[in-house]
């Protein structure tokens, strides 16, 4: 698997993603926001950060970068795309994923490790058993996921809710475990097809055991395995 990690002006997690991917034995290279050729990449990651200073709204300007037209085409062809944190915000602005990410209801920037429960979803990026609890850091000011009631029903019914914030034991009230006010405690969603995945937590930061935890590894290894199987 070779991942293209898009670098927008103001991205700041691209090195973490490239390090995580290479540490796990995958290929990974940077893709500049002005590039328009994604040839040779098996998957695209939009990393965290503050693209274009988060001006207007988080992700609103990045969505119109030249590279995003290609990312949209790549996704529409079924290519795997993962947006982490600011990358998730960009995917919603680009309408590759529904909903939006508002300011945290606490008005505080949140930077800490949180427990997440893996849900039974169509997401191609994650093959963990539903109900598994992973601990992954979040690092954001605008992670308060919101969508209208109809969209929420759609997300639930189609297996598009991939991750929920939960209590340390995996239990969840579906309303109140999220540190940021996110609707239905949603931390990550995918599109109907499952190839486009957006999440607020940062799995790339918990891949190399040197940081003390490896809960993020399955977020990258499942796709690599899937691609290897497809290639036969």
């Amino acid at each position: 698997m070779r991942l293209g990690v898009v670098v927008f002006p103001g991205s700041n997690c691209e090195q973490d993603v490239v390090h995580a991917a290479r540490f796990l034995g995958f290929g990974a290279d940077y893709v500049w926001h002005g590039d328009t050729d994604l040839t040779g990449f098996d998957g695209i990651v939009l990393p965290g950060g503050f693209s274009y200073g988060d001006y207007i709204r988080c992700g609103a300007v990045a969505r119109f970068s030249p590279v995003m037209n290609e990312v949209i085409r790549f996704a529409e062809r079924g290519g795997p795309v993962m947006g982490i944190c600011n990358g998730f915000q960009i995917l919603t602005e680009a309408h590759l994923l529904p909903g939006a990410l508002l300011r945290n209801d606490t008005l505080k920037f949140i930077c800490r490790e949180v427990p997440l429960r893996v849900e039974d979803s169509a997401c191609q990026w994650l093959a963990l058993e539903p109900g598994t609890v992973v601990r992954v850091p979040v690092n954001h000011n605008e992670g308060n996921f919101i969508c209208d009631a109809e969209t929420l029903e759609h997300l639930r019914g189609n297996g598009q809710v991939v991750l929920r914030y939960c209590e340390p034991d995996g239990s969840s009230s579906h309303d109140g475990s999220a540190p940021n006010g996110a609707l239905d405690d949603i931390a990550g969603i995918c599109n109907e097809r499952g190839n486009v995945f957006g999440l607020m937590p940062h799995p790339e930061r918990v891949c190399d055991p040197v940081v003390g935890r490896t809960d993020g590894q399955p977020f990258f290894t499942a796709m690599a395995q899937r691609l290897a199987e497809v290639a036969g």
Binding site: I56, A60, T92, E93, P98, G99, A100, L102, C147
Partner: peptide, 8 residues
């Protein structure tokens, strides 16, 4: 397109 997000 840009100045507002019709979703929210």
């Amino acid at each position: 397109k840009l100045l507002a997000n019709p979703v929210i």
